[in-house]
Structure formats: C-alpha cells, structure tokens
C-alpha cells in the first residue's frame, strides 16, 4: 500500500469527528436528560460531572470543522452551505448550553432559565447534528465545486429520524455516563433510564440501517455485495455483542461497562457509516481525492497533527484521570 495523504487525512478527520461524537455526546446527553431530573442538587452534580471536560470535548468539533477546511476545503465549502440552517441552529444550541455551565450559578437563586437553556440547547445541538448526518447520507447536490441544491433539501423524513436517533443516542451516553459518575438515587434513576434509551438507540440504528440502502444504490451495492458485505455483516454482529455486554453489566449494576458498551455502539455505527461513504467524503458527489487540498497543505498540517495529537490524547486523558471517580452527592449544599 502506498502512502496516501488524502486517505490518511480522511482517517484523521474521521477520528476527530468520532472523538467529538462520543465525547460531546455524553455531555450533550447529560443536558438532554436534564428534564428527567428536577432537583437542583441533582442537576448540580450532573453539570459538575462534565464541567472540567466539556470544552475540551467541544474542541474536537472545532478540529473537525477547521481540519475539514484545511485539508478538504471544497467539502467544507459545499457541505456547510448545504446545511446552512441546521449548522447555525446547532451553533446557537451550543452557545446556550455552553454558557449555561457558569450562568446557572449566576442568575437569581431559584431561576430555572439557564437550566432550561442548558437542556434545550443540548437537545437542539444534538438534533441538528443528527440532521446533518442524515443529510450527508442522503446526498448533497454539487456542481462546479459549489453547492447547487435548495435551502430546505436537508429537511426530509429520513433526516428527522436521524436527528431523533442522535438525540436518543446522546441521551443513552449521558445516562450511562451518570451511571458511572454518580451515586445513590441519582445513579439509580440514570441506570433506569439507560435501559430504554439504549434499546431505543438500537431500534433507531436498525431503522436507519434498513432505510439507508434504499436511498442510494451505492449503499445497497456496498452493503450487500461481496466482499464488503463481510464488513456490513460484521458490524451488526459486533453491535449485538455490545448490546449483550451492556445488558449483562447493567443488570449487575456495573459502573463502567454500560458506558463503554454504549460508546462501542457509537463507534461501530460510525465505522459502518465510514465504510459506506468511502472513498467519498461527500457521498455520491466528492471523493476524498477530488476534495483534497494541495499536497503541501496536507503535509504541513500533518506535521502538526503527528506531533500534537498524541500529546493531546495524553493530556486529555490525564485531565479525565484527575477527575476520575464518582461525583459525591453527600458533598452538595450546605
């Protein structure tokens, strides 16, 4: 195999997006679950469990966006106009939920405004991300290196389903995260929510998977023809093992495994999607090689990525390690 820069970069961008999805996934999920927890003390613990890490998590989104502009500029320049409204609504959602971490301590005592902003913003951002995913899967019309479709092309029943699926999926990650990070009643409640959420997630994955091959022949070919069919068979099998792992661990009241099993479901779905897209970066419209920036850009940034990403993973891991363990509910208000 020759050393192929665009493919390598596609892998790096995919890794960034995946990191974003699983990391911000659980902290957006905690926001989505806010309405289920009405006590101020519970909500404090919930936000405190993610306060030290959330902006690191969202940095992966900036890397996904900035990286795409750097190495696949034409993809960046066509996908974003195509998804104009969902992207802007996602950003608005992120603004509201991001400031709420600090603002909810600053409003007049008793005011629920920023609590509501936190969960509505989180849910809006998640839903719009799901729509973005769905719109990519269903295809984007490109002519002459620019977006040629309409302003509402992204709004279809399919994208509504993918939007909902991502909200459910993030909520499932959030619930299993809380199962891991909290104790007592709060944890029991999160554990209770995790079960229906994960099964709704699996149902959504199944629904979207059944729908997708009928959107475009390419997916159908890819999924049901040898040799790629081997992989498309492997993904459901591995998903089933994650489900088993999740189920048995949850029953034994395990702290950690349910979260990582749910994370595994996300990773597998993501890999499945990646396989369906490859070698396109905008499915059906732009291949990785067509969209790639000039070689000197790819090389220049690769130095940075090669040196920095291992360091980033190391110190991000360290930050998670420093704040490991349960958030203690006994240490609440006094």
């Amino acid at each position: 195999m020759t050393f192929d820069l665009p493919s390598l970069w596609a892998a790096i961008i995919a890794f960034s997006v995946l990191s974003y999805v699983v990391l911000d996934g659980f902290d957006l999920g905690v926001g989505i679950l806010f309405p289920a927890f009405r006590e101020r003390a519970d909500r404090d613990i919930m936000t405190n469990s993610i306060a030290p890490v959330w902006d690191g998590n969202e940095t992966w989104l900036v890397l996904g966006g900035g990286g795409l502009m750097a190495v696949f500029p034409v993809a960046y320049a066509t996908v974003l106009p195509a998804l104009y409204l969902p992207i802007i609504l996602m950003l608005i959602g992120l603004v509201f939920r991001g400031v709420a971490f600090e603002f909810r301590w600053r409003t007049l005592p008793g005011s629920k405004f920023w609590d509501n902003a936190f969960w509505i913003g989180s849910t809006l951002a998640a839903f719009m991300q799901g729509i973005t995913l769905g719109a990519l899967v269903q295809g984007i019309e490109i002519e002459n290196r620019s977006y040629a479709g309409g302003w509402w092309d992204w709004l279809t029943p399919f994208t509504m389903i993918t939007g909902l699926a991502v909200v459910i999926g993030y909520a499932a990650l959030g619930a299993t995260w809380l199962n891991m990070k909290t104790t007592g009643k709060l944890r029991e409640k999160a554990r209770g929510l995790a079960k229906p959420l994960v099964f709704s997630l699996l149902f959504s994955i199944a629904l979207v998977s059944l729908w997708t091959p009928f959107i475009d022949d390419q997916y159908f070919d890819r999924w049901f023809r040898w040799p790629t069919a081997f992989f498309s068979a492997l993904v459901p099998l591995l998903l089933a093992s994650c489900t088993y792992l999740f189920w048995s661990a949850l029953k034994q009241s395990n702290d950690v495994i349910p979260f990582f099993a749910t994370l595994g479901m996300f990773v597998l779905t993501f890999v499945g999607l990646g396989l369906s897209f490859y070698p396109d970066i905008v499915p059906g419209a732009l291949s990785i090689h067509e969209a790639a920036a000039p070689e000197s850009s790819l090389k220049f940034l690769l130095w940075g990525a090669g040196v920095c990403m291992p360091m980033i993973l190391a110190y991000t891991g360290y930050a998670y390690w420093v704040f490991r363990g349960k958030v203690d509910p006994e240490e609440g208000y006094h």
Partner: peptide, 11 residues
C-alpha cells in the same frame, strides 16, 4: 473563500 483559500488559511 473557503474553497479558494482554505488550503492556506485552513492549516
């Protein structure tokens, strides 16, 4: 702009 200058400003 992103398409034309992305290869420079982006990195």
């Amino acid at each position: 702009f992103s398409d034309k200058a992305g290869a420079i400003v982006g990195p």
